[in-house]
């Protein structure tokens, strides 16, 4: 029933372009094999009308994917989170009227993918498969780790004339919440 409700909501979101950008996490799992911690994630990204319009006017939009692995520590009775690993990479989404296709450019590994529709491009943007996080040797069994994922629009990469607008409009400073996953060390899959 819960899955059905989620599906309905996704369909509803797909049906109409929302006024505000939204990101819904569909899946976030960790995988541990060959002494490495991997992550799989799938998120449904919906961009607001303004952002889509900008993309379709050939304004390249950069999205930063932030992945963070934190460790739960404690000093005396005071708990705190320390950062274990932090990975940020940028993906640029653009459109060419001439070529009539969307382009997804991973600035980290320079991979480029072309799409004739926006939705598959956004689906690809929100999908992370077998992403290596860290070596398992860096993790200690018995400690609690948390894997966090966030997408945000890099408004610093917008063209200069849009800065004024971006400063005043939340659409251009859009970012998702931190999606979190507790990681259990010592597990093999």
């Amino acid at each position: 029933m819960k899955c059905l409700g989620g599906l309905v909501s996704i369909l509803f979101m797909l049906a109409a372009q929302p006024a505000w950008s939204q990101i819904t996490l569909l899946e976030l799992v960790d995988k541990q094999f060959e002494s490495t911690l991997y992550m799989d994630a799938k998120a449904h990204i919906q961009l607001s009308e303004k952002v889509v319009e900008a993309i379709q006017h050939e304004i390249p939009i950069q999205f930063i994917t932030q992945i963070e692995l934190t460790r739960r520590d404690q000093i005396f009775i005071f708990p705190y989170n320390s950062q274990q690993t932090r990975i940020d990479y940028t993906t640029e989404l653009s459109y060419s009227h001439y070529d009539r296709r969307y382009k997804l450019h991973n600035l980290r590994n320079q991979n480029i993918l072309y799409f004739s529709q926006l939705e598959p491009a956004l689906a690809t943007l929100g999908e992370i498969q077998n992403f290596p996080i860290t070596s398992l040797n860096q993790l200690h069994s018995g400690l609690r780790y948390k894997l966090k994922l966030r997408f945000r629009l890099n408004y610093w990469s917008l063209p200069a004339p849009m800065f004024t607008q971006a400063l005043l409009d939340a659409d251009w400073r859009f970012k998702s919440e931190w999606f979190e996953l507790d990681v259990q060390t010592g597990r093999r899959r």
């Binding site: 319009e53 006017h57 050939e58 304004i59 200069a160 849009m162 004024t164």
Partner: peptide, 25 residues
């Protein structure tokens, strides 16, 4: 050349209002 011109035209067309705002600012 055509692709670049068309791309810049679309970009500038979209940036018309922000450009006005920015220049006015």
């Amino acid at each position: 050349s055509v692709r670049l011109a068309q791309s810049q035209y679309h970009e500038l067309n979209y940036l018309r209002a922000p450009l006005k705002t920015s220049f006015t600012l």
